[in-house]
Every structure is written in C-alpha cells, then in structure tokens.
Simulated scan of single mutants.
Amino acid sequence: MNKREIGKSGIYASELGLGCMSIGTEEKQAETLLKTALDEGITYFDTADLYDFGVNEQLVGKTLRAVRDQVVIATKAGNRWTESKNSWTWDASKAYIKEAAKQSLKRLSIDYIDLYQLHGGTLEDPIDETIEAFEELKAEGLIRAYGISSIRPTVINEYVKRSNLSNVMMQYSILDRRPEVQALPILAENGVTVAARGPVAFGLLTSHWRDKLSKAAKKGVNWYSEPELESVLSTLEKNVPEGRTLNGLAFRYVLGHPAAATVVAGASSVEQLKENARAVREAALTEEEYKWIQDISKTADYDAHRL
C-alpha cells in the first residue's frame, strides 16, 4: 500500500489508516482485526485515551508492540472521564496534556507516540499553553509529531498560525466537502496534512446506501435533503467508471486532495477491513473523474462550528 508523509514530520503513513475505535474490547477479535490490517499493508493506527476508558490503547499497544518500528501510532487527549464514567469533561491545559501523554504511553506500552493529537478544541482553550505541552513532549522524545482532531476552521487556523503542528484529523468525504472551502487550502499552503475520517459518510458511499439513506440524511449530512442525497448517490452509482466501485470512488476522492495524508476508516469485521483496503488500492482518480464528482456533489459551511 502506498504511503504519504504526515506534514513535514518525516513520518510516513499508509494511505488507509485503521480507526481503532471500532475494534471492540474482546481481545481476540481486536487482535485479529489489527493483524489483518497489517497483512493488508496498513501502517497507520488511530486510537485515543477516551476509547473504552483506555482499553482501546491497551489492545492496540499489545498487538502492535512486535512491529513497533513498522507502524505509526496516533492517539489523542483532551477529554477526561468523570469519576462515574458516564460522561467526560474537556481539559486542554498544559499539565493535563503532558500527564495524559504519559498515561497513554503506559497503556500502549511504548516509548514514544508517533502522532499526538488534541481531541477537539475551541477558541476558549489556552491554545499557547496547549502548544507548549506538545512542543515539550516532542523535545522530551515522548512524541514525534503533533496535531489536532477538529472540524472547527477557526481553531484550525489558530494552530496553523501559532504552532508547528503536522496534521489535522477531520471528517471529509464526497458528501462532506466542507473542508475544501474553509480548512484544506490553508493546510495545503502551510505543509500541514489531513487524516480524513468518515470517507464513506455513514455507509452512504457504499453499495448499501439505500438501507442507510433516511437515517444518515438526518444524522450527519443534513446540508442535503433526502431527495438530494438520493439523486447524488443514484447518479454516482449509475455512472461509476469501468474498473471502479462506489466506495473506491469515495476513498480515492479524498486521497485526491493535495493535503490528504491518509484516510482513516473503522472496521468491525475482517471482511469490511479487506474491502476498505481493496477500495484504496483502486487507481487514483483522473482529473475528469475528480471534476465529475465535484459537479455532482456540493460544498457546505460549518455553520454550527464557529468557535
């Protein structure tokens, strides 16, 4: 599988990354999925301290320890579980980020984190303090690079201006092209890459889209009406170029942007994981195919995510 550099970090990630939140908490199943990912050429693994109260990091670390020098491990911090563990609070302070990194390292049983990310962020955060935490962790050799996981253009702009971040993780797909207007241009100009999540848009950009249409239209792509979604998806499906598939178009479209480093997709079964890997291996889109997809779909604004 092809690899791309994360920002200017010198770290190279496979074009397909595994979103580890979906591997579950059963150790054997998680191990099977992680090893299948390795067999498929996936080298980028995304987790977070929030997932399953840290159990996800433990499972990822246990399986990947034997191939540590061959993989990129990305994790996140900023959300703190309450004592009751039924909700969490937000903490982007320097002290918390530095301590959270050390706790993640323990759970992962590794000496360093390849990409450490703020798991959200607002303009009300002590941004300079947060950046100091990342820079100190990097200087101490505990992380190799850092970034943020956010869809807020205002927050992204501040980190681009004030830090040396390498990467932004954000939702991006054919059906969610909001980043193309308000985030990706500034990232590409500054050598910051994107780890795109949600490439198949809640399953809409697969052959099973009809089963998911009504729910997804209300949930995650509400800038489309249901009739609009049906029209876009029907057009895509009926006109998929020879040798391509609908989900192949989905992955290759995202990877077609100059800022894209990797596409992070979850998988709860071996079959789903292998299908994602197959889709990513389809040929890069031609200019004509890329423009055709843009003509069919539409962009939108981050109306609800200004701060």
Rank of each mutant, 00 (worst) to 15 (best):
N190T: 08
D301V: 11
E226H: 08
Y146K: 03
L204K: 02
V181C: 07
L285T: 13
M169L: 15
K85M: 09
H208M: 14
K212G: 10
D176W: 08
S173M: 08
K102F: 02
G220N: 04
E275H: 09
E57H: 05
L184E: 06
T63H: 07
K219E: 13
G61R: 02
I127F: 01
T47S: 13
K85G: 02
E124W: 03
E124F: 05
R281K: 15
G41V: 03
K161C: 12
R107H: 08
L108Y: 00
N56L: 06
E5G: 04
R210D: 11
A217K: 02
I174Y: 01
G41H: 00
K219V: 09
Y302P: 14
E129N: 10
A284E: 11
L38H: 08
E271K: 13
E289F: 02
R152K: 12
E129C: 10
S150V: 02
E132Q: 07
R252E: 00
K274E: 13
A300H: 12
S225T: 15
F251M: 11
N79D: 01
P126W: 04
E99M: 14
V71Y: 00
E230N: 11
Y44L: 11
Y51T: 10
A195M: 11
D111E: 11
L255P: 07
E189S: 11
Y51I: 08
S109T: 07
D211F: 12
A188M: 05
D114K: 00
A101F: 03
I42S: 07
S268W: 00
E189R: 15
E5C: 09
R197C: 07
D303N: 14
I97P: 03
N276T: 08
A48L: 09
A217Q: 04
G78I: 09
T25P: 08
Q103S: 12
D125C: 05
T122M: 02
A250P: 02
L204W: 00
G147D: 01
N56G: 06
W292Y: 13
D295K: 03
Q272H: 14
K28W: 11
E136N: 05
T193V: 14
D303I: 14
F134N: 03
I110N: 01
T82C: 06
T235I: 10
P258H: 03
N167Y: 00
S207T: 13
S149V: 12
Y112S: 13
L187H: 02
K161W: 05
L213S: 04
A183Y: 04
R144P: 04
S234I: 08
K102V: 14
W209L: 04
S109Q: 12
Y302E: 13
H208D: 15
A201N: 04
N56H: 09
L255K: 01
F202T: 12
T262L: 08
S268T: 05
S225G: 10
G220V: 04
A92H: 10
M1D: 09
Q29T: 14
E27W: 11
E289S: 13
A66Q: 14
V181F: 06
N247P: 10
T32H: 07
Y290Q: 11
V72T: 09
T262S: 12
V194G: 03
K238A: 13
E282G: 15
H119F: 05
V155I: 15
E242W: 06
I151P: 02
K94Q: 15
L50K: 04
A13M: 05
R144L: 07
Y96D: 12
L187E: 04
K298L: 10
F53L: 13
V181R: 14
